[in-house]
Design a protein around this nucleic acid. Sequence first.
DNA 1: TTGAAAGCGCTAACAT
DNA 2: ATGTTAGCGCTTTCAA
Lengths: 335, 335
Amino acid sequence: MKKNITITDVAEHAKVSKSTVSQYLNKRYDYMADKTKKRIEEAIHELGYQPNIVARSLKQKSTSTIGVIVANILHTFSTQVIRAIEDYCHDSDFHIIVCNADDNPEKEKKYINMLLAKQVDGLIIFPTGGNTDLYQKMVNNDFPLVFVDRTVHDMKIPAVLLDNEKATSLAVEHFVKKGYSQIGIITTSISRHVASRVERINGFKKALLENSLPVIDNYIKSREVEDIQDALADMLSEEVPPQAILVGNDLALMEILAYVKQHSINVPKDLAIISIDEVSFASLYNPTLTVISQPTFEIGEKAASLILEKLQKKKISESQFNYRFEPKLIIRESC
Amino acid sequence: MKKNITITDVAEHAKVSKSTVSQYLNKRYDYMADKTKKRIEEAIHELGYQPNIVARSLKQKSTSTIGVIVANILHTFSTQVIRAIEDYCHDSDFHIIVCNADDNPEKEKKYINMLLAKQVDGLIIFPTGGNTDLYQKMVNNDFPLVFVDRTVHDMKIPAVLLDNEKATSLAVEHFVKKGYSQIGIITTSISRHVASRVERINGFKKALLENSLPVIDNYIKSREVEDIQDALADMLSEEVPPQAILVGNDLALMEILAYVKQHSINVPKDLAIISIDEVSFASLYNPTLTVISQPTFEIGEKAASLILEKLQKKKISESQFNYRFEPKLIIRESC
DNA sequence: TTGAAAGCGCTAACAT
DNA sequence: ATGTTAGCGCTTTCAA
């Protein structure tokens, strides 16, 4: 590995001082003679010089990078939101570093500390919910922090997420409209500290009541991914099995579809399905899948803009703490 | 944002010098008195000190991070390989920064320069193929570089990728075994500088010949994603349309399935399908999809290990330049 | 066993 | 219009 070219080399080559080169690099041409400018330009070109961002970051105490910690990268939702964040940051000349916590609070903690050590300027977190102390510490330090997808109870941290109640009520209403009254819900289990699972289940119950349907506990299951199929099996072996089921997210959906396929259950005749999260094959599947889609792009964009705002103003005016986005029902054949 | 705690603060708090704290941080306890060690430990804990990685990187001229530039993050293949790279690097205390070139050489160039400026210790690239000059420059500078998924013609850069010929021949042989003789191939178009598309198409032709089948130009199409459906339509409107089709990757597959669905084409009766790349819904789809899967985990692992080796030895002994991995035929219902 | 001092590559106040 | 200088937070000789 050859020696790196530094600003000193450029300065010597152009026969000016380092500071002048630095001025040039930072586009402060105000008092710079045209010929020096040109000489520096040439020197940079001839040497193939690239400024060392690490050195600059050290000096400026700012890395122009945002850390993103996602609870579980396997969700299509996550990757789409991340792409939106990346796009937005890119436009403002910020970089992002993405870490996957694997739904594991320990990993999340490790990544938070790592990213802080790396001096990221802000953090966007899809929280596991298991590190409230750490979150709180960052808030106390005025460190720019935004949550995505989930809020954490009692934390004064902006969160960008779906209007989960609306999502479940959209689903339930559609089921009802299609004539279903025995409706179940299955979702993957996530930490109780985290609002979204609770919100979806509560929203579901509320929607049932609003439609004058009874809330039946055995129709409500939240399990680890590996146990989703069993949960469905349990539900379907009830004396009166549900005729329709709301699936909490894309990973749960895969399990449901696997079960349905293996047991030759006809969708929607034997079991109607609505899933939260749009999936790539929803319109290719047989039958095509009715889903509640999240505006992933807007969510990511909002999260990124909140962080960048915080960085600029250093003071958030009129802090709002929940940015709720509208779900959309996409009607296809599965219900 | 509160002031960051530095090594100086810790030193003062523990009443030792900065260098001693640094020794401690780097686990050089060899000559350190137990009580000083303890005092430093306490100070660090009390102050909640985190070493500043940026400063360390500047001094050490090494960031312990690897840059990864992926040609197109939308391929499942890419995300899986990246996860494997991340896992491997993580075990060696390296971080990765992932950038998506969007199949655009200009973007790729921008990211290469950005990552170099950020002083990454090495680069893993899924090359677009459009920046041979830049690649060459890095090689000349002895900068650790590994390609994934594609080789670039005449470059002395290790590449980790699928045995594409094997992949196509597996597919063709399976088609033949199933009694098909009119076989087409459709894939998304990628730069001509890049070997994989060429390899898959050449491998396809070769396999046809080996099975004593004629090579028909109109059965061979490579187009942009948006034009894939048209390409299929063209092929199917041939006088003698193909009865079986090999699909080059997952994104192309989505298009094919959309077309097939819209035109009520029965798979495999009207059209048999084999696709390169395993997709999440392959075993859920109706019919289940026969695919050629790539060992994404091994590919990522190999790429990461090659880079890390290069970093350590600084000299590659017996450099090998192509690491080919075995495709696997997963037989399901679509052929 | 610990400390002093130089320096990584850059920026920014202050001189000139 | 350009140069001098100090310093960002850390590591690393070398000295004590």
